[in-house]
């Protein structure tokens, strides 16, 4: 994998819908190889932050840096070039329902590379095997369970061997075992691909199991309250809201990954 993958820096970011400010003063750094968790209560702006990072929403103020590139100051072509190095797993999977899994994964490969169809087929089979769906190339998304759809969407997200992987609530709607398996898969893929992973979630089990760095957004104060390794935050953070969140309201500072 590329040894020069850039980290992401969010600097003094304000997110707003029109005049309604969702979050302001966001300042944090995502290091290369991190599994970075964006956490916080419902409606605090986690997914919106992700949308800012993947070019779907423009900041009201502030900057997002990919390495030394100021993302939102670039023109559209250069932004697309950066996003070409990113894979996104949406909350619903967002697989194209009119295409088979094979076609879903092959589409970005055919669009961005000049590989021969046979090579693309080999790549598709390999990606599906990585997520435990070997042999499912000819299936349509509607024929799969929710967990399988998530894994298929993950295979599409890693189709182009991205440097950055973004996950929006990856374990939402999954049973605990499927959620844990998905966490494990994300971790293994991240290590194997050497990708930097950004995950939006409020699943504590996932946060402790795979998170190496994090930011906590507070919906009431409309800003971030803490950043760092979630396990360290659990031990040391003095912010009551963060502690309540990380201990599921019990105040007992012990890591529970199940």
């Amino acid at each position: 994998m590329s040894a020069t993958a850039a980290a992401i820096t969010v600097s003094d970011l304000t997110m707003a819908y029109g005049s309604f400010v969702l979050q302001r003063g966001l300042d944090f750094t995502i290091n290369q190889g991190d599994i970075f968790v964006i956490m916080g209560g419902s409606g605090c702006g986690k997914s919106t932050l992700l949308r800012h990072m993947i070019g779907l929403m423009q900041p009201a103020q502030g900057e997002i840096w990919y390495g030394k590139e100021n993302f939102w100051k670039l023109d559209e072509t250069d932004r697309a070039a950066i996003l070409r190095k990113a894979g996104v797993l949406y909350q619903s999977g967002a697989l194209w329902s009119s295409m088979t899994l094979g076609e879903n994964i092959a589409l970005p490969l055919a669009h961005y590379t000049s590989l021969a169809p046979k090579v693309i087929d080999e790549l598709v089979s390999f990606k599906l095997s990585l997520v435990g769906l070997a042999g499912f190339e000819s299936y349509y998304p509607a024929q799969l369970s929710g967990g399988m759809r998530k894994r298929a969407a993950l295979a599409r997200a890693i189709a182009l061997d991205p440097d950055f992987l973004f996950f929006d609530e990856p374990s939402a709607g999954l049973d605990p075992i499927s959620a844990r398996n998905l966490d494990q898969l994300i971790q293994e893929l991240c290590e194997g691909l050497g990708a930097t992973v950004i995950i939006v979630t409020h699943e504590l089990a996932s946060i402790y199991a795979i998170g190496t760095n994090s930011v906590f957004l507070d919906g009431e104060k409309k800003t971030m309250l803490a950043t760092g390794d979630p396990k360290m935050l659990l031990k040391e953070c003095q912010e009551e809201t963060v502690v309540q969140f990380l201990t599921r309201g019990t105040g007992k500072r012990e890591v529970r990954t199940v």
């Binding site: 095997s129 990585l130 997520v131 070997a134 042999g135 499912f136 000819s138 299936y139 293994e188 194997g192």
Partner: peptide, 14 residues
């Protein structure tokens, strides 16, 4: 790791 992950994936015959 990735070769291992691919090799250990259940080979389903849909």
């Amino acid at each position: 790791d990735l070769l291992h992950l691919s090799a250990t994936s259940p080979k389903q015959s849909p």
